[in-house]
Design a protein around this nucleic acid. Structure first.
Lengths: 332, 332
DNA sequence: TCCATATATGTTATCGATAACATATTGGAG
DNA sequence: CTCCAATATGTTATCGATAACATATATGGA
């Protein structure tokens, strides 16, 4: 920067100002500086700048997996919402593990982000402490934690899934099964199973049928295998709710291969409104959860929260509920 | 850090050493320091550290889109390869635009990454200059640029697609069409079209049939619409090669809806070996390109390159070819 | 026993920018 | 023509760690 300053015949402070908008600087000077920058091929060193200004421009975002179009959509929404703010996302993958989340939170905090976004409301004790003492805005998204750290953007997976059970009940289905992952690592998956059970109970259906198959995230193939198991174990089953659209699609394909008519012999429903559920043949009934919106709303909230911190006025804790809805399609 | 040092009764330098492995420090001292850190809830400030050590631990990675499982897989491969190295990925989305890429490169360079990875070999002049003068290892992945900036990890999309045309030819198909995006923003898509044309020419098939539909990335739905258009315009068509598996799946679904038998009435092929191509019914013939491997190899290369820079010995430019293969399935 | 080497810790200067404050310049109202 | 406020620029100290060098202590072989 000193080289640039010398070339342009100004002080480094003026160069610094020229590179930041909103500073008072003469047009001619700015042009001269820009020419010098171009000439010398100078690129601002933001790491030095953030040390001094205490603004890194980072936002840490932890999602379970990048290979899941739901979270990818959320990341895109977040990214779009932060476009033009100069805030940059530091993305981390927890691989559905809260232990890995803890490690990631610490390594992220070392970068001094201006806010942290985590997926879900379940953390290790130490992880939670990190979040609470970080001194920056924290957003938990995708779930509705009973005891949020601070801000929340999401919806109740259980409630949404319960709605799906009720929808199927109204359509006349009674022997409804649930296909999900084996472990409880995926809290959203566990929540959906809970919703299934609640829904069944609410409709007075005593007999629940749950097939657990594979560790999250459940793939298409595993959805197919789970369906095989399901019809072997409970041949009388009339409908299968899958923990996500991917597994639902796998189940649908398996039905096609086995010659099981959808929905007359067996109905299939998914979760998440992935593109595949609308494009599949038959198309798949699902719960649309507006992943992009979760990300976008989180981004918008972050902007306000960070602005608040910068001006010294922290904003109050917010809980933003995103909407969801059963989307009826050909498969039920 | 001074607080920690005082609490543990050592100097800040010793605290700094305790937090870095590979430094000589007495076990008792390290434990004492760790206790102080825990007690005070101290979190290392890496931005200050990188300013001093000139090692940010960042790697900038630019991909066209996060909502594409191919690139998501590559990102995962990269992430896995860098696991445990302390290198953190700064991910950016170019949205298939080299102008946006240019902007991103500059804003990434301001963070002083230790290496840059870009997708594809086409850049704006300024973007290319940034890469050339960055003074850090540069990797272009997914394509084989004619004039690489430095390292390359990828394969020839054209060659791969040409192989697919030849495969279909051997199977007896002659009237082969190509379904892709309208613009040339997606250089890999353009490359694949080129491969289609070359393949047709090589097989002595004069009549090419190309349907352009939508801007990249082409969705499933657009694949279906493109297929409709295709059979309207050229009812005699025997096979359709789609620019990616997503559009191929859309085309397959559209065929099912229209009652066009696959592959007897029309054969469908995709590109990329997405999970959906193997799970779909009928399953879809595609070109497996090992996206994860591209990412993983890139990561491994980065480790060596960065290690080289740190020890003052830059490694020579490398070009790593990843493999691909036609995967025959039910749809052809 | 003694010195050479390895190990453990401290001191000082510095990384490259920006905040905070100080100063110079400009433009227009009176 | 003043003079004040707004605008433009400069000076100095500092952000929080680590590199480089200096020093102290332990270890072990001749």
């Amino acid at each position: 920067m000193m080289d640039v300053a010398r070339t342009a015949g100004v002080s480094t402070m003026t160069v610094s100002r020229a590179l930041k908008d909103g500073s008072s600087i003469a047009d001619a000077t700015r042009k001269r500086i820009m020419r010098a920058i171009d000439e010398l091929g100078y690129v601002l060193d933001q790491s030095a700048g953030s040390l001094s200004s205490k603004r890194t421009g980072f936002v840490a975002v932890l999602i379970p997996s990048i290979n899941n179009s739901n979270f990818a959509d959320t990341a895109r929404g977040l990214s779009d919402a932060l476009e033009g703010t100069g805030l940059q996302i530091l993305l981390g993958y927890t691989d559905y593990s809260i232990e890995k989340e803890e490690t990631l939170i610490e390594s992220m905090l070392r970068r001094r982000p201006e806010a942290v976004v985590v997926t879900g409301g379940k953390h290790t004790p130490k992880g939670r402490r990190f979040l609470e003492n970080a001194g920056i805005p924290v957003v938990e998204m995708w779930d509705l934690p009973t005891k949020p750290v601070r801000h929340v953007v999401g919806f109740s997976n259980a409630e949404a899934e319960e709605g799906l059970v009720k929808f199927l009940y109204k359509k006349g289905y009674r022997k409804i099964a649930f296909i999900g992952g084996t472990t409880n690592r995926d809290t959203r998956g566990a929540d959906r199973r809970l919703g299934y059970e609640r829904g069944m109970a609410a409709m007075g259906l005593k007999e629940t049928r749950v097939i657990s198959f594979g560790t999250p995230p459940i793939t298409m193939k595993q959805g197919g295998e789970a369906l095989s198991k399901l019809v072997d174990v409970w041949p009388e089953v009339e409908a299968a709710i899958c923990v996500s659209d991917l597994s639902a699609f796998g189940a649908v394909t398996e039905c096609l291969r086995r010659g099981l008519a959808i929905p007359s012999r067996i109905a299939i429903a998914g979760f998440g409104d992935f593109e595949i559920s609308s494009c599949s043949f038959p198309s798949i009934t699902t719960v649309g959860v507006n992943c992009y919106q979760i990300g976008y709303q989180t981004g918008a909230l972050l902007k306000r929260a960070i602005e608040g911190e910068r001006s010294g006025k922290s904003i109050a804790a917010e809980t933003i509920l995103t909407d969801y809805a059963v989307i009826p399609r050909e498969s039920t």
